[in-house]
Structure formats: structure tokens, C-alpha cells
């Protein structure tokens, strides 16, 4: 041992410092800076169902935007001679041949109705000879519009209401919560029927009726979240700095509520679409001749046993929209709030 120690002479110079020398280097963060949203989107991208839903919705929204200016033919134009034609695409794809089963035999309906060659109805026509594909495009657009407008009410009433109720607390909170309970105790359908007494049935009265009742879930969620946020130390810090309550709401509360808001919005759009479809289906929604998913389903089910295509396609459209919105909302919730994943 001692022999080795003799040979081995250690001076401060024989040591080399490993790692950062100065404080600046120690404090350096080498990871790229990600904002909260970038991080959430990164997580969302790992969720295949959500991404597929996102693109499906993007296509559906694009189609409905296009339908504002262009549809294959006028969705409200009637050609009684061409009534109830089955779907036909020129190149003979099964199911889109323009033939119908009449008494066990395939009959070319287009030839029977003397439709000029080269005129096709991709999804067929209804009992008044209106082009169903055009009506479906318009119908999706109208349903999405209703969904968006109803959600706008959600945001404009629900978010401020929830923040004020949660932030003020005390008596204000108690009174505001009792009001919510009273409103939520009246069924939606009753509100809609009452609205129909005041207004003509249509887009306006449906949106107002859903606006009156729809924001309650949003307000409750936002209030609960605000109650937790307001005891957070960064909110206390903002108060001790002298930030005004309005600025605290916009700078501290809303950014931290954004995930709740986005997720709830994504859930409330399909709810509104579904509610409109339900109203139109029972006949107190969008009035004729305008098309919405509900009116298309309602018309289609009358002849469902003989002309099933009249109901299949609107039904498929509403199902896809509902599933896509729900899957995307689920994905967003997991992306924004990884803790609730399990």
C-alpha cells in the first residue's frame, strides 16, 4: 500500500473538474421550450382515434362550408317526376347503380322515370324528387351551425357566470347556484315548446331555447374549477401585487380554465346537434323545406322499409359526427389533463 502511495503523487493539478464550471451553465435548461398547448398537442397526436376524428370533422366542416356556395343541385328544387330515385353513380358501384328491388326483380328506376342520360343522384332523391346529397350537405351545415351557436351561448353565459359565482363566493354564489338549480329543473323540451309559443319555429328559437338551458353544465364546471384556482398561490400572489379582479380572471383564471372550456365545448356541440335532430324529428324543429339532419331522418324513416337509403345516409352522417366529436373531446381531455387518464 505505502509503496503505491509513494509512487502516486496527488496534487490539486492532477484533478480535473467534470461538469459545469460556472453557475450560468448549471442553471441552463437544454430542453426545448414547449408551451402548455404545444405539449397538449404533442400528447393528442399520440391518440390515433382522436386524430382520425379530427380529420373526419375537418372534412365534414369543409363540406358544410362548401355547401354555403355550391351544392350539386338546388336542395329545395322539386322534380316530382324524379321522386324516390335510388342512389346512382355512373360507373356501376354496387349500391349506386340506380336499380331498385321491386317485387323480387331489379328495376332501373332511372330508365323508368326517363331521367336523361348523364344525370345522376349520388344519394338518390326523396319523395319530392329533391337531390338527397345536396340536402345532406345543407343539413350537416345547418346542424353544425346550430351546434356552434348553442356552444357560443355556453361560452358567453356559462364561463362568466361560473367565474363570477366561484370567485365572489358567499351570498352571491349561493344565489347564483339557486338560480342555476331552478333553470336546470325545467326540462329542455318544455322550454323549447314554450319558445315556440313566442317565436316561429326555426333556427332562432331552437338556438335560444338551447342557449337558455345549455350553459348550466359549463357554468357548474367553471365554478368548481374557479373555487380550486382562487386558493392557488399564484392567484393570491396576483392579489397581493394589486391586480384587479377582472385582470385576474383574464390573465390567471381563463388560461388555466381553458382545458375545461375546450373539452366542455367539444362535448356540448354534439349534444346540441343531437337535440336539434330530435326536435326536427318530432316535428318542432327546422321547418320545411329547409334540410337538417333531423328533418332528413324524419322524412327517411317514413319510407325506411322500401327506400332504406333515404334514412341510411343521414343516419350515418349524424353518427359519424357524434362519434367523432366525442372521441376528439375524449382525446383532448386526456391531452390537456394527463392526470384524469385512468
Amino acid at each position: 500500500m505505502s509503496e503505491q502511495a509513494d509512487k502516486l503523487e496527488l496534487t490539486p493539478d492532477s484533478f480535473k473538474r467534470v461538469g459545469a464550471n460556472d453557475t450560468d451553465a448549471q442553471e441552463k435548461i437544454s430542453a426545448p421550450s414547449l408551451t402548455f398547448f404545444q405539449d397538449a398537442i404533442r400528447r393528442l397526436k399520440q391518440n390515433k382515434a382522436a386524430i382520425i376524428s379530427f380529420w373526419l370533422l375537418a372534412i365534414i366542416i369543409l363540406i358544410s362550408i362548401v355547401s354555403i356556395w355550391w351544392t350539386p343541385s338546388d336542395p329545395n328544387a322539386q322534380h316530382v317526376a324524379y321522386a324516390n330515385l335510388p342512389p346512382k353513380i355512373g360507373n356501376g358501384i354496387p349500391g349506386f347503380t340506380g336499380q331498385a328491388n321491386v317485387g323480387g326483380q331489379l328495376v332501373d328506376k332511372y330508365a323508368q322515370a326517363n331521367v336523361p342520360k348523364g344525370t345522376y343522384y349520388i344519394l338518390g332523391t326523396d319523395y319530392l324528387g329533391r337531390d338527397l346529397f345536396s340536402r345532406l350537405m345543407k343539413g350537416i351545415a345547418l346542424s353544425l351551425l346550430i351546434g356552434m351557436l348553442a356552444t357560443l351561448f355556453d361560452l358567453m353565459i356559462g364561463v362568466p357566470y361560473g367565474i363570477i359565482s366561484g370567485w365572489r363566493g358567499g351570498h352571491t354564489d349561493t344565489i347564483m347556484q339557486r338560480i342555476i338549480e331552478i333553470i336546470s329543473s325545467i326540462p329542455n323540451l318544455v322550454v323549447v315548446i314554450l319558445m315556440l309559443l313566442l317565436f316561429t319555429p326555426g333556427l332562432g328559437s331552437i338556438v335560444v331555447a338551447m342557449g337558455i338551458t345549455g350553459w348550466i353544465t359549463m357554468a357548474r364546471l367553471i365554478r368548481a374549477e374557479t373555487l380550486t384556482l382562487k386558493t392557488q398561490e399564484y392567484v393570491l400572489a396576483a392579489r397581493t401585487i394589486g391586480e384587479s379582479p377582472f385582470k385576474i380572471a383574464t390573465k390567471h383564471l381563463i388560461p388555466n380554465l381553458s382545458s375545461t372550456i375546450i373539452i366542455q365545448t367539444m362535448f356540448s356541440i354534439p349534444t346540441a346537434i343531437f337535440f336539434e335532430a330530435f326536435l326536427s324529428f318530432i316535428g318542432i324543429g327546422i321547418p320545411a323545406p329547409n334540410a337538417s339532419l333531423g328533418t332528413l331522418l324524419s322524412d327517411g324513416q317514413k319510407t325506411f322499409r322500401f327506400l332504406p337509403y333515404q334514412m341510411w345516409y343521414p343516419a350515418a352522417a349524424i353518427s359519424i359526427i357524434m362519434i367523432a366529436f366525442n372521441l376528439l373531446a375524449d382525446g383532448l381531455r386526456d391531452a390537456f389533463d394527463p392526470k384524469t387518464n385512468n
Binding site: 399564484y234 396576483a238 388560461p255
Partner: peptide, 22 residues
């Protein structure tokens, strides 16, 4: 506001006292 400027506070939990979105 003037009083708020003269007195300040340092908080207990460094994880909760900074707004994560700022």
C-alpha cells in the same frame, strides 16, 4: 395600490405560486 406595492409576499409552494400558463 400603493399599499400593495410596499408590501409583498413570498409563497410556500414554489410549484403552486407561479401561473403555469405564463
Amino acid at each position: 395600490l400603493e399599499f400593495r406595492r410596499e408590501m409583498q409576499m413570498i409563497f410556500q409552494d414554489p410549484y403552486a405560486s407561479l401561473n403555469p400558463r405564463m
